[in-house]
């Protein structure tokens, strides 16, 4: 474990806490894409299959349980909670995310570390995570104004993978045989997708103005 990876995991956890806070405090999920939340639940379920087979560390196990539980809780909340589900922007959240699932799964069948179910699902979860934010970014562009908590949620979600890139560089330099091309390349693509959001987020922060994404 290195400081970059710990910072990445804590930033990721923070993004989930901010999202839970927004939904719980405002009893509303307006501006949040249910499709992105479903994709994240799928990412964690596909990636953490080894939760019960490979024990890495207490920290690793606890974080996996927290990520799976929180992502499922958010999907449950947005689908079934009587009060929250009314504020879901159903007509704005129209990204065809099934294409993302199909495309990344086919890619995982072709590009993986080993042609075993667990490795294919792991690669699938890595590729899917890279594109999972797209429905959310599209929703933000459509809904015009972005409330602070939602903006912070997306910002932390993008920042966490940027910390992971620093972690991979650090591990590549310090560990003799560290290579994790699938996660590295996918992580760079993922962080790149946030680039324009980061740009507008920084502009709004500098001008102390409301975050607006161009339609």
């Amino acid at each position: 474990m290195n400081i970059f990876r710990l910072a990445g995991d804590m930033t990721h956890l923070l993004s989930i806490i901010v999202l839970l806070l927004k939904i719980y405090a405002t009893k509303s999920c307006s501006g949040i894409s249910l499709k992105t939340q479903e994709l994240y639940a799928l990412v964690f379920l596909a990636r953490y299959l080894d939760l019960f087979t490979d024990f890495i560390s207490v920290y690793n196990t606890i974080m996996k349980v927290v990520f799976i539980a929180s992502s499922l809780a958010i999907v449950w909340c947005m689908r079934l909670h009587p009060l929250v589900k009314r504020s879901y922007d159903k007509e704005l959240d129209t990204f065809r995310h099934y294409f993302l699932i199909g495309g990344t799964f086919v890619l995982a069948l072709v590009l993986n570390e080993k042609f075993t179910l667990q490795e294919i699902l792991w690669a699938f979860s890595i590729y899917l995570e890279a594109v999972a934010i797209l429905p959310q970014l599209v929703l933000l562009q459509r809904s015009g104004n972005v409330d602070n908590l939602t903006g912070q949620y997306v910002f932390f979600l993008g920042a966490y993978r940027a910390f992971y890139i620093l972690n991979w560089i650090y591990r590549y330099l310090t560990e003799p045989r560290f290579t994790r091309w699938i996660a590295c390349v996918s992580g760079i693509v993922q962080t790149g997708i946030y680039a324009d959001f980061f740009y507008y987020y920084f502009i709004s922060w500098k001008n102390n103005s409301k975050l607006k994404l161009p339609a």
């Binding site: 990721h12 990636r47 490979d54 890495i56 990520f67 080993k114 667990q118 992971y164 994790r180």
Partner: peptide
Amino acid sequence: EGQSVVKDEL
């Protein structure tokens, strides 16, 4: 060899 790298990252 060929043992898939243990996934120690989240």
